[in-house]
Simulated assay, not measured.
Amino acid sequence: MATSTAKFTGDPNSHDTSEFSDGISATCLCGSIRITINDNELFTRKRGHLCHCANCRKVAGSYVSSNLAIEKEKVVVDDPQGVLKRYRDYATASGKCVERCFCGTCGNPLLSIAEIYPTMIIVKMGIFPRIPEPECESFALHRHAWQGKHGDLPQFEIVRGGKQLGE
């Protein structure tokens, strides 16, 4: 059972995945922008990936970023005050632009739009109350030696679907 502090600590265990059978919503820190993912498979199979590239680590402010690449039509961005800001990042492994989107009020990273994936949006999953179990790791060559392995996740040296570590 959830404790009274769950509301304030963001304890993911206080939310049963059945709450998100049709999708999931979350806001940035200040609440100016709401993102909704409309997908009934978020918690019925492994989804998303842990990315270890330098830019995702910077945006996440951590040693890894939890991302979900998903079809654009499944994502709704509600920005009634027009505060969503975009940084056009060309310092990427592909050299193609990745628009890194964040709240202009609180600075919360929210999503990325990668030129190499024109039909997809990459949502930063840390804003949501629950994060689906990831299906893989990308840029695994860029992991820190102290990290250890995340279960039996496939580890791609660089990009998802590319060469795996140890191949």
Results as ranks from 00 to 15, higher is better:
residue 89 D to H: 11
residue 5 T to W: 12
residue 147 Q to P: 06
residue 84 L to G: 01
residue 148 G to V: 06
residue 2 A to I: 05
residue 165 L to W: 07
residue 76 V to K: 15
residue 16 D to S: 14
residue 126 G to R: 13
residue 3 T to W: 10
residue 157 E to G: 04
residue 35 I to S: 03
residue 77 V to T: 08
residue 11 D to G: 09
residue 151 G to P: 07
residue 67 N to H: 08
residue 73 E to M: 07
residue 42 L to Y: 04
residue 18 S to A: 14
residue 165 L to F: 08
residue 155 Q to T: 02
residue 46 K to F: 07
residue 138 S to H: 04
residue 91 A to E: 15
residue 51 C to Y: 06
residue 5 T to D: 08
residue 28 C to L: 00
residue 4 S to R: 02
residue 141 L to I: 15
residue 29 L to H: 12
residue 57 R to I: 05
residue 116 I to Q: 15
residue 72 K to G: 10
residue 40 N to T: 09
residue 21 S to D: 13
residue 39 D to G: 06
residue 166 G to E: 10
residue 157 E to Q: 05
residue 38 N to V: 12
residue 43 F to R: 06
residue 167 E to I: 01
residue 145 A to Q: 15
residue 153 L to V: 06
residue 8 F to V: 04
residue 49 H to W: 07
residue 105 T to P: 02
residue 8 F to G: 10
residue 159 V to H: 12
residue 11 D to H: 11
residue 15 H to E: 02
residue 157 E to A: 06
residue 38 N to F: 09
residue 31 G to Q: 07
residue 1 M to G: 09
residue 14 S to L: 08
residue 132 P to W: 00
residue 25 S to Q: 02
residue 23 G to W: 06
residue 148 G to I: 04
residue 119 T to G: 09
residue 112 S to E: 10
residue 162 G to P: 01
residue 119 T to Q: 11
residue 130 R to V: 14
residue 151 G to S: 10
residue 13 N to D: 14
residue 42 L to A: 05
residue 158 I to A: 08
residue 25 S to G: 06
residue 4 S to M: 12
residue 51 C to T: 02
residue 134 P to D: 00
residue 86 R to Q: 14
residue 112 S to Q: 12
residue 84 L to N: 00
residue 49 H to F: 11
residue 84 L to E: 01
residue 135 E to I: 06
residue 91 A to R: 15
residue 15 H to G: 01
